[in-house]
Amino acid sequence: MEKNQNTGRTAWPLWEIFIRSKQGLDHKHVGSLHAADAAMAIENARDVYTRRMEGVSIWVVESKYVHASNPDEAASFYDPANDKVYRHPTFYDLPDELKHM
């Protein structure tokens, strides 16, 4: 466990919280919090992030297991997609019956 810089005491690990709302089809990242383990992280998420009936399902992932892209590589990562408009699925009409697109 990491040492807390302010108190010098052992701190609980950080967790990333994902909530699926009633209407939503996917879990969305809502923030992060501290907890001793996964079970406590889910309870803490319930208390911190679903107080106003935001969610019906909670995922938690310990933050150290999240691997992120490097912001320094943003140019080579994302810019090449800029001028390739044909990759967007906007060149045909969707039937009305098709939801959630």
């Binding site: 919090l33 501290h34 907890a35 803490n44 208390d47 911190v48 107080r51």
Partner: peptide
């Protein structure tokens, strides 16, 4: 003792 539990007990 920690923000998350402060909120839990306040709830």
């Amino acid at each position: 003792p920690i923000l998350e539990q402060d909120i839990a007990l306040s709830n």
